Simulated assay, not measured.
Amino acid sequence: MTHTTAAARISPEHARQDLVDHPHYRYRGCAPDPDQPTQAAGNPDLTLDAWEGQDIDGAENQIERRERQAAAIEVCIDCPVMARCLTYARTYRVETGADGTQKAVLTEPSGVLGGMTSLERHREFITAQHRIVAPAPDARLRTAQKMALLTALAAHTHHDDVARAAGMDLRTANWHRSALTTLLGLNKKTALRQELLAAAVERGLLNADRIVADDGTVPAVPRPGQPRTPAAARSARINPFAATEATHGPSAARPLPSRPVPSRPGRLRVLRSRVHAVDGQLELDLGLSAGATVTTLPLPSTRTLEAAA
């Protein structure tokens, strides 16, 4: 089944009370059948635990579970309080861990509710979780580095200028931008600079009149692959032979790779047997003065090379 995705904004207690107070709540499909208290009113062939499932590992295989859930969902579709039940099923609560960190969790993590299985609700919850993340405590936001980063981000739009104004290297500045985006409950993959600064203003971290506007496309966290240096320097770093190519052409830019020396003695003998004397190969212009003599050494014979090998 498919359902319209909607992040729950109502509290679990309020949603639960709305469900119970509905005038048709007593006639819900998963209520006990008046004549058979262990069976469901919406389908007497189903037991009341058809919406809850088995608590014992291995007590229900995959086929049985799917059949049970399908039968329960069919009852939900005809239930007069399905909409209220689904609203409650989508609510979440905020839990605080031992280390003080907070996270949002589904109020009802198991069972079939409102025509949705627990797996469907968890998938929907994970998809929308970046929009319903619990707000971070002020102490985690008002650190010296994060406040410096926010001030710099409000005054500048380019990531290099932001890092410089915050007194950080680019990697550190981007890390704090990512952390701030998450702590303020935004999706760091899609959030824009304007959204991050607006959330900071709402939390009282910035004054709105200090924000320099941008064109509406600047991301809150620089995208991977964005240039970090000027174009000319970046081109030289990627292609160090660019200047040579422009002057002498592509063929003169890159030196030919040297051929690796074989490590096998047998291969050495074969290569050495191919050495031939080339006229003039040892005639070098040494810039000698007049009258000086140059002695050209003869190349060793093939047999000498093979004996040395």
Rank of each mutant, 00 (worst) to 15 (best):
A148F: 02
A277F: 15
A208W: 05
L299R: 14
V20N: 03
P262Y: 03
E74D: 11
V105T: 10
P240G: 09
S11V: 06
L197E: 02
E52W: 06
A242D: 08
A89R: 02
I238F: 11
Q62H: 15
D161W: 07
T190V: 06
P80A: 03
N61W: 06
A72K: 05
E108D: 15
T47I: 02
G225I: 10
I211F: 03
L297E: 11
T4Y: 07
R65S: 11
I132D: 09
T38C: 01
R66K: 07
Q62A: 15
T157R: 13
V75G: 03
P257W: 15
A199T: 04
E245I: 12
N43V: 03
R269S: 14
A166I: 00
G266H: 13
S118R: 07
A6C: 07
G42L: 04
R303Y: 09
Q102N: 07
D138H: 08
L286E: 13
A72V: 09
Q129E: 14
L196M: 09
A8M: 06
P227A: 10
D45Q: 00
D215Y: 04
R164C: 04
D45L: 03
L196P: 00
K103Y: 14
A136C: 08
R223H: 13
P260I: 10
G266A: 14
S289K: 11
I77F: 14
Q145A: 13
E108G: 05
D18L: 03
T244N: 13
G100F: 11
A220S: 14
E195T: 01
L286A: 12
A199G: 06
E67P: 00
R66A: 11
K188Y: 12
G114R: 03
Q102V: 10
N43Y: 02
T181L: 00
A98P: 12
A308Q: 13
L183T: 00
R237S: 12
T247R: 13
D138A: 12
E283D: 15
V294P: 01
T47L: 05
G111Q: 05
L305I: 02
P137T: 01
A155H: 11
L284Y: 12
V20K: 01
G97P: 01
A139N: 11
R131D: 15
L150D: 05
S251M: 04
P298G: 02
A220Y: 07
G249Q: 09
Q39P: 02
A165R: 07
L149A: 09
C30K: 01
R123L: 13
T151H: 09
V212R: 15
L268R: 14
T143E: 13
L206R: 04
P255K: 06
L186P: 02
P300C: 08
Y92H: 10
A154L: 01
V218F: 08
L184C: 08
V75S: 03
R259D: 11
A220T: 11
Q145H: 12
G58N: 11
A98Y: 11
D214W: 07
M147A: 06
L284A: 07
A277K: 14
Q54W: 13
A8D: 06
K146P: 01
P23K: 04
P219E: 14
T295A: 14
L19T: 00
P224A: 06
